[in-house]
Simulated assay, not measured.
Amino acid sequence: MSDERKLQVLRAIVQDYVSTSEPVGSKALLERHQLGVSAATVRNDMAALEDEGLIAAPHTSAGRIPTDAGYRLYVDKLSQIKPLSKAERKAIEQFLVRSVDLDDVLSRTVRLLSSLTGQAAVVQYPSLNTATVRHVELVPRAADRLTLVVILSTGQVEQRVIELGRSLTEQEIDELINDLRAGLNDRTAGLRRSPASHALLRWADELSEPTQEAGSVVATAVAGVLAEEREDRVLLGGTANLVRSSGDFALSLGPLLDALEEHMVLLRLLSHEVGEAATDGVAVRIGTENAIRGLTGTSVVTTAYDADSLASLGVLGPTRMDYPSTMAAVRAVARYVADIIDN
């Protein structure tokens, strides 16, 4: 018995079941696919696939459906992900390029992924704790205050008001900003938040007149902003798609929806295990491969879009999923998000 032919039969079963949601029989396979073999051969191949735990009979009908192991073999045999069409890529680019800041980029990403795949979408913010400083700017606000603007490598913009402790003339403020701007950027650009904070504290102690007093206040304030620890954030969207697919889940949706309410569960969904198998950078966890309680009846398709912080995005849905299309959409969206953030 040919392993390649059995794999061909498995592919056909997966494709038909995903398309129709009905158990697939040998007669339907012969009618819909050019398998080039007899009905008896197809039945023998299906029996062998069932013995190997790759397909199963959901009830007493002649039809079979893929098991988690069957989906896994099917996904593993995808040597590469078929790219989206030019029109699809253009639509993704046009939707994301209208974003005005990082929050808008990721909000649009969740909506886009959910719409493209018909699944629930999850996007992780780039970790601000691992981000590097791209630029520091000071803007006059009042006689005794400045606005601090810190731009990070993730595209995130931090703004704070710095109290100088005393009033300065407009000329003094302009001179202070001119004296400090280069020093702030020379000591922080390209560094992660914590090292940049320490560098500024050392610099604050080294400042001399005439900028020593006000300069020390500013440098210390910037160091404090950079030293702030930030919790990783995630966005979830499209959970209504899970409700519309409720018939694909063996158990109640309650445990699944409860699990998705937990912040740490969402972060774990997007985490990539060392050595985890991936196709073109896209990882797929199917059914019982998801160890999180409530998610064992789902499949999760994820990929990283920010190399520095390993921030990821992905989708979650039933195991009866169009894996090639979903993987292609996840990969394409991740690439556009990465380009937007890098620029």
Rank of each mutant, 00 (worst) to 15 (best):
E163V: 04
E163G: 04
E163T: 02
E163R: 04
L164P: 08
L164I: 10
L164D: 09
L164A: 06
R166I: 04
R166A: 14
R166D: 15
S167W: 04
S167A: 14
S167E: 14
L168E: 10
T169L: 03
T169Y: 01
T169E: 05
E170S: 05
E170K: 02
E170M: 05
Q171S: 15
Q171C: 04
E172F: 00
E172C: 03
E172L: 01
I173D: 07
I173T: 13
D174V: 02
D174I: 02
E175K: 12
L176K: 02
I177V: 09
I177E: 11
N178V: 05
N178M: 06
N178I: 01
N178F: 02
D179I: 04
D179R: 09
D179A: 13
R181W: 01
R181L: 07
R181N: 07
A182H: 09
A182Q: 08
G183C: 07
G183P: 03
L184Y: 06
L184M: 00
L184N: 02
N185M: 01
D186S: 12
R187T: 05
R187D: 06
R187F: 10
R187V: 07
T188K: 04
T188C: 02
T188M: 12
T188E: 03
A189R: 13
A189H: 11
A189Q: 11
A189E: 13
A189S: 15
A189C: 14
G190A: 01
G190S: 04
G190C: 02
L191P: 10
L191D: 14
L191Y: 12
R192Y: 01
R192P: 12
R192K: 14
R193K: 03
S194D: 15
S194V: 11
P195R: 02
P195I: 00
P195W: 00
P195Q: 05
P195L: 00
A196P: 00
A196V: 00
A196Y: 00
S197C: 02
S197D: 01
H198E: 15
H198T: 13
H198V: 15
H198K: 14
A199E: 14
L200Y: 01
L200Q: 00
L201S: 04
L201A: 04
R202Y: 06
R202H: 03
R202W: 01
R202C: 04
R202E: 10
R202D: 14
R202N: 12
W203H: 09
A204Q: 02
A204W: 04
D205L: 05
E206F: 09
E206L: 13
L207K: 03
L207E: 06
S208C: 03
S208H: 07
S208Q: 12
S208A: 10
E209C: 00
E209T: 09
E209W: 02
P210R: 06
P210D: 05
P210W: 08
T211N: 08
T211C: 07
Q212I: 05
Q212S: 13
E213G: 05
E213Q: 11
E213T: 11
A214R: 09
A214E: 15
A214H: 12
A214N: 09
A214M: 13
G215M: 08
G215Q: 06
G215H: 06
S216W: 10
S216Q: 13
S216N: 13
V217C: 13
V217R: 13
V217I: 15
V217W: 14
V217E: 09
A219N: 07
A219C: 07
